[in-house]
Design a protein around this nucleic acid. Sequence first.
DNA 1: ACCATAACTGTCCGATCGGTCAGAACTGAC
DNA 2: GTCAGTTCTGACCGATCGGACAGTTATGGT
Lengths: 182, 182
Amino acid sequence: MARSASAMRGQILESALRLFAVHGFRGTSLQDIASDAGCSKASLLYHFAGKEKILTELLTPARDALATLLDRVAGLEGGRLVEETVTGYVDLTLRFRREIRLLFEDIAEMSCHQDLDVMELANGLLDALAGRSRRAPARVAAWMVLGAVFITSATDDEVAPDEVLRAEMIRSALRALDHTPS
Amino acid sequence: MARSASAMRGQILESALRLFAVHGFRGTSLQDIASDAGCSKASLLYHFAGKEKILTELLTPARDALATLLDRVAGLEGGRLVEETVTGYVDLTLRFRREIRLLFEDIAEMSCHQDLDVMELANGLLDALAGRSRRAPARVAAWMVLGAVFITSATDDEVAPDEVLRAEMIRSALRALDHTPS
DNA sequence: ACCATAACTGTCCGATCGGTCAGAACTGAC
DNA sequence: GTCAGTTCTGACCGATCGGACAGTTATGGT
């Protein structure tokens, strides 16, 4: 063997990203990555100081891209600020989809696992949020609200008292769904 | 020792929920839970058939509540459907905050960890999405969009081609932020 | 051809994990 | 007090993990 160092490193990173995105970080062992990349586990640790360093190297480009975006919008304000930030953020997440997915597959695996089959319920919730519509705009907005409420509830940021938080979450969600109050 | 069975079970579930919410499911060992609950690891496995069963018992109430919500809105349609679903979903996530948090702490720990300190960047992004406003409605909406875009990008649901997905994500996000197009 | 260096590997290690099991400790009914 | 049944535990097990290290193999400059 003994390919060029950068080639092997690239192969390792590629394998790691794919496996992390399927089984999660903790759910993927160094041996798994080594087997997939076609080298020994010891070779991994020759190229990378440790398992965490592999993860760091995988996530750094996304991090840097986010930092760049924030720099770019630092001087803006008002409507331009929000528009540029949203557009940039969306593009960024789409570009680094696999990296984001690896952060979530721990959850996904946990949800699919065991008796409680959450995925079926999640699809039901998605349908209801989309108002039973199958059209793409409604479905995308439904996904957005699904994730938005989920994450916002999980935050411990103390951004607002619970009553305010609840009211604003509902209003914001309905706006995202393009819902005209009846 | 030798308390009543249900008391010990309750103590174990309480400890497990708290520890899972701090260190994640995989990041919490049976020994951790046992120490926190004030019993031996073997005692855990007397009350619960395995580690996964503890998680199942913790998440089942939330799952059942979601199923109940979906049943309740099953007969509705149009505006009422969307309103009831959103309100119910928000209430549900707020009620089961700790359970949701435990699903996320794997991510949180991973993000805070290592060199790349993502949290500072996330706060910057949050500020920009909120249009630099410190008011609660803007901050809540910013959190919503942060999570919405993140999760929607991570999905592999093939809900729409990437160009459509991108456009709808941006539109939906701007609506959630109550942004009036300039 | 030679050799310093880079690339790579087999093997071992300590730690930790979830889980088992035989038996001790406790409990309430009688 | 006795005893059956419940509750609990220390000790142990096999598996797996991330990592260390000495030694082997390939590479490129001379």
